[in-house]
């Protein structure tokens, strides 16, 4: 009988392996394997072509993997950048004088107040679309939630009696930051960061689908889905079904990963 902690560890390992496989798979799939092959176009799913083929004979399984791996890379890079911004801004808000905090809160509310998609489209459009524009857009819109979380954590822990006591024991601010505050926010930060991935990926796919994100040469899932729309009415359901399903699967994987990492990092739930 496995206990919960073992289960969580296995789940984390399995999820990370699947994600790594997708990433490596995406790197191995190059232009040549996604060439048009008119001898096998419009095939429905079979053992040769698991996800079927499209209107110019490209294998949909390979395209989906490639698309997912692009989404993954964008998700990872965007999350890391958002995370770094969030830590700096959140910690500043928690440590600096009140007026700095007020400005930061105002900024967070401003960014959060505008619908993500709208802001993303505008930023992506201004910065020239494509990979770079999309990345800047996602980072600029996704740091807020995490920054707010870190700010409130820092504020909360700063009011703890043991922090004030540390000061009366003659400890410096930098000691308190290193020894008390950072170890406290780190686990929460990691979990939130993991849960940020699916957000970033979904927004990337959404914006690309709408035509404001990646260009058609980059076969992201969003591109695949928007191209497929034209062919759905001809009965080629597999063009959108499998890539869409895989995208949902990827999101669920991240969600599970976040949950399990949380169980492992949070010492209090470990004893149940």
């Amino acid at each position: 009988m496995m206990n919960r902690r073992t289960k969580s560890i296995i789940m984390v390992i399995v999820t990370i392996s699947i994600l790594t496989l997708i990433l490596i798979g995406g790197l191995l799939i190059d232009e040549s394997s996604l060439k048009a092959d008119f001898s096998s176009k419009n095939l429905s799913p079979s053992l040769d072509h698991l996800f079927g083929t499209d209107w110019i004979g490209r294998d949909m399984f390979l395209r989906t993997i490639k698309g997912l791996s692009i989404s993954l890379i964008i998700g990872i890079v965007a999350s890391i950048f958002s995370g770094v911004i969030a830590v700096i801004v959140g910690a500043l808000a928690g440590i600096m004088p009140k007026w700095v905090d007020s400005i930061i809160i105002w900024l967070i509310d401003l960014v959060m107040g505008i619908p993500h998609i709208l802001l993303l489209i505008i930023i992506s459009f201004i910065t020239g679309r494509g990979f770079k524009g999309l990345l800047i857009g996602i980072v600029a819109t996704h740091w807020t939630g995490l920054a707010r979380l870190i700010r409130s954590e820092v504020l909360q822990i700063r009011s703890e009696f043991y922090i004030k006591l540390s000061k009366k024991l003659g400890r410096s601010n930098s000691y308190i930051l290193r020894r008390h505050i950072l170890p406290h926010i780190l686990p929460q930060f990691i979990v939130s960061l993991i849960l940020l991935f699916p957000h970033a990926i979904l927004h990337e796919a959404g914006i690309t689908f709408l035509g404001f994100g990646l260009s058609p040469e980059e076969p992201a899932v969003g591109i695949i889905l928007s191209e497929s729309m034209k062919y759905l009415s001809t009965g080629m359901w597999w063009l959108a079904f499998f890539p869409g399903l895989s995208l949902v699967g990827l999101i669920i994987l991240f969600d599970k990963l976040g949950d399990n990492v949380k169980k492992l990092l949070d010492p209090y739930s470990a004893q149940e």
Binding site: E160, F161, Y162, L165, K168, H180, H184
Partner: peptide, 13 residues
Amino acid sequence: LIYQHPEKSINPR
């Protein structure tokens, strides 16, 4: 100062 609630004056981590 020594406080009534030791659990609050000690970092749980």
